[in-house]
Design a protein around this nucleic acid. Structure first.
Lengths: 199, 199
DNA sequence: GAAGAATTCTATAGATCTATAGAAAAATAG
DNA sequence: CTATTTTTCTATAGATCTATAGAATTCTTC
């Protein structure tokens, strides 16, 4: 078990990641300054460097925080033996749920990751590629099973799902009263009835 | 007619807008420095201020350049009396064509416009809202005509079109060999067969 | 409650960047 | 070719920001 002090370190570092996510999301990586991040968590600018060795390291942690859950969900979804429709719903649900919960970190991942140091960026890129590839595989399988019509290009289809989720995610974030369940239903309905060849 | 010198001013200012678009797209507004922009068009940093009074003004011009054509297209599409399918195809075509031609300025508009001075931002926001509203109206009309099924929420639908176009626009930009026509067809096919209630 | 460890603070060196002023060079007009 | 206007250049003041060093403070543990 962690000592009490190590626990505090972990807790504060998490707080720093969340504060950085909020500030990076609002002002962008270069527009944000470390003073803003520190003040948001109630410490002074210099103290932030007890938790990060650089601003770039903070960015890396924020980006990872933004997508890790969502990539792990996809691992489970893709390897399961559910129907195409169930897998698609699970994907959209995971994506859109993450969007509300972690919208700041996700926005940072989407908009600012190119400012990461090379090494970190390639690591995250692999996560993103795996996500996309698994989604493509789901479409390929569904085409073999005849559930999705052959005219559909799996690569485009995967991109369409991601793009639509991101666009609707923005709606969700902008309007906190919006019913997540309703959005998920609309999204899958629209996608399914576009992909299905059962006319 | 413009004097020869006024013509040069106009030409150079356009060059400055394009250079700024490229640099802002690559590094983000705050990450870019005026030295980069000036050097890209072959002048020195200080000289840039002969064409812009501030970095923010340059950003404003880039954003406007990114969307103006595309908003004007929508004005024409929405006021025409074509079928729903034709209007949707025209919208997707306009959006995706712009994407390849002006992808840098569009990216800047999408990612960096929030750093604009208040006044300029609201002006662009109105353009964007008009675009979205016209697209929604197209869906509303199509629902009244029975071409689009009633279960479809026009607001979500408009967002879906925009989101899908943006996602596929990224594909187009990333892969210059990709056939624009094919992408447009895939996109409209997917959308139409999701929206149509002719089963 | 004293010793040691963990956390935060203050202060600042060094780097970078915007915007301006005024000189220099290039283009145009008479 | 000379005078005038337009464009570009050099140099820099002033502002901002990152990252570090070392002191001060707050927690833990015994």
């Amino acid at each position: 078990m962690q000592s009490a002090s190590a626990e505090k370190y972990t807790r504060q570092r998490q707080a720093a990641i969340r504060a950085a996510a909020a500030v990076f999301a609002e002002k962008g990586f270069h527009g944000a300054c470390t003073k803003d991040i520190a003040e948001r968590m109630g410490i002074k600018q210099g103290s932030l460097y007890y938790y990060f060795s650089s601003k770039e390291e903070a960015l890396g942690e924020v980006c990872l925080f933004g997508i890790q859950d969502y990539v792990e969900h996809m691992d489970n979804i893709a390897s399961g033996d559910q129907s195409f429709e169930a897998k698609l719903t699970a994907t959209v649900t995971s994506h859109l749920s993450s969007y509300r919960e972690r919208n700041e970190a996700l926005k940072v991942y989407n908009d600012e990751r190119l400012y990461l140091p090379e090494e970190r960026r390639t690591g995250l890129k692999e996560l993103g590629s795996r996500y996309r590839q698994q989604l493509e595989d789901i479409f390929e399988d569904a085409k073999k099973d005849g559930v999705v019509r052959n005219g559909i290009d799996s690569h485009f289809a995967a991109q369409a799902v991601i793009g639509m989720c991101n666009a609707w995610g923005d709606l969700i974030v902008r309007d906190p009263d919006l019913d997540l369940f309703k959005v998920i239903q609309n999204c899958t309905d629209l996608l399914i009835n576009g992909f299905s060849n059962k006319k």
